[in-house]
Design a protein around this nucleic acid. Structure first.
Lengths: 209, 209
DNA sequence: CCTTTACGCGAGTAATTGCTCACATACTCG
DNA sequence: CGAGTATGTGAGCAATTACTCGCGTAAAGG
C-alpha cells in the first residue's frame, strides 16, 4: 500500500535554487509542447533545463510529481482566467455569457494544443485520487458561480446536483475543443457555435425535465 | 519518414495458428481489463496467452498493431450494437430513441470500465491518422442514420455539417459516461438523465440557431 | 576565516521492455 | 517417406529510463 508522494521534496531557500526549480518547470513545459509525451523523461528535461538530473530529484521526488506540478500550474492559469471571465459576464444574458466562456476555452486550448493535450493525457493516467480536486473543483466552482449569476434564466435541475451539472459542462467543453484541436492547425469556424449549442442545449434542454 | 506498419504481419493458415492469434487477442483483452496499461507488454501478454513472444511477433509486427487489433475488435462490437439499436428505434419518437441509445452506451462502458478506458487511452496515444477512420466512421454513420430517421423532429443545423454533429454526439457520450465510470463501481442513477439531457439539448437547442 | 548547510553535478545502476534470431517441431502434399 | 512450408520457441540483445550516490562547489554566518 505504498503511496507515491507527489508533493515537492524540498523547498528551495536560496534564490539560485528557486531559479533552478523554475528552469525545470519551464523545461518540462517546453518539452511537452514540442515533443509531447515522447520526450518527457527526466534526463531530457534536466538537459533542456540546463541542470543535472540530480538537481531535478532534489526538488521533485519522482517524475509524477513534476507532471503534477505542471498540471497544477496550468489549471491555476485556467482557473484564474475562467473566474475573471465569469465575473465579467455576470450581468450579461446567459447566452452571451456562454458564448464568451466558450470563446475563452477555445482560445486557451488552441494556444498550445500539444501541451494542453499532453497534460490532459497525463492527468488521466496519474494516480491522482483526490489530488487535483483542488484545481478541478476551482474550475467547477467558477462554473457554479456562473450558474448562480444566471439562475433567473435557468430552469431548476431535476437530475443531477449543480456540481454534477458544472462538471458535465466542463467535460463537454474539454472534449469538443480537444477533438478539433487534435487534428488541424486552427480552430474550425464551426467549433464555437457547436460548443455554445452543446452547452446551452444542456442547460436549457426542453421537454426532458 | 518511416511509418510503422499497424497491419497484421502474416495471415494464419492452419487452424492451429488461428487459435494462437485468438489466444493472443484474448490475452491482450484480459490483461488490459485486469491490470490496465500497467501490465500491457508483449512478454506478459504472450505468457498469459500461453505462447511465446516469438509467436506473437509472427502475427503482429509490433505492439501497436496488437493494440490496434483490440481497438478495432471492440469498435466493431460497438458498431454492431449501435446499428442494431438505431434500427430498433427508427420508428420511436426522438426522445425515446435517444434515451435507449444512451442506455446502450452506458451499459457498454460499464460492462468493463477498465478495459474500455484503457482502449480509449491507447487510441488517443497511437499514431492512427486515418487508421481507425473505418470503425469510427461506422459509428458516425449509425448516428447519421438515427438523425435521418428522425429528421422530422429535428431543426435544420445551421452550424456544422451533420457529420460534425454526429461526431459531437459521440464525443459527448463518451466523456460523460467515461467520467462516471472512472470513479465508482456502478453507474450513478443521475448519469442516464444527464446524458439524455446533453444529447437532446444539443440536438434541439432553442434560440441558438 | 572556517564550519555548516544548501546546492549542484553526472556517471552509473537496476529494472523494464520491445523485438530478433537461430533453432526445433508440426503439418502438407507429391 | 521426404522435401518444403508453416508454426512455435525463448534466451537474450539493445535501447530506454527512472532514480541514486558520492563528491564537489557556493553561500551563510559565526
Amino acid at each position: 500500500m505504498d503511496k507515491p508522494h507527489l508533493e515537492a521534496r524540498k523547498a528551495p531557500k536560496q534564490a539560485r535554487s528557486q531559479a533552478t526549480v523554475q528552469a525545470i518547470l519551464t523545461a518540462g513545459a517546453r518539452v511537452l509542447a514540442q515533443e509531447s509525451l515522447a520526450g518527457f523523461n527526466t534526463n531530457r528535461i534536466a538537459e533542456v533545463a540546463g541542470v543535472s538530473v540530480g538537481s531535478l530529484y532534489q526538488y521533485f521526488p519522482n517524475k509524477a510529481a513534476l507532471a503534477v506540478a505542471l498540471i497544477d500550474q496550468e489549471r491555476e492559469r485556467l482557473a484564474v482566467a475562467l473566474e475573471a471571465a465569469v465575473a465579467s459576464v455576470s450581468d450579461a444574458p446567459l447566452l452571451e455569457g456562454l458564448s464568451r466562456l466558450a470563446r475563452l476555452a477555445i482560445e486557451q486550448q488552441f494556444q498550445d494544443p500539444v501541451y494542453a493535450a499532453a497534460l490532459d493525457h497525463e492527468e488521466r493516467r496519474l494516480p491522482l485520487g483526490t489530488r487535483l480536486a483542488s484545481s478541478e473543483s476551482r474550475l467547477v466552482g467558477a462554473i457554479l458561480q456562473f450558474l448562480e449569476d444566471h439562475r433567473d434564466e435557468l430552469p431548476t435541475f431535476p437530475d443531477g446536483s449543480p456540481k454534477e451539472v458544472a462538471r458535465d459542462l466542463l467535460l463537454i467543453t474539454r472534449v469538443l475543443v480537444e477533438a478539433d484541436a487534435h487534428g488541424g492547425q486552427g480552430a474550425p469556424p464551426s467549433l464555437h457555435p457547436r460548443l455554445v449549442r452543446a452547452l446551452a442545449g444542456y442547460l436549457l434542454a426542453p421537454g426532458v425535465a
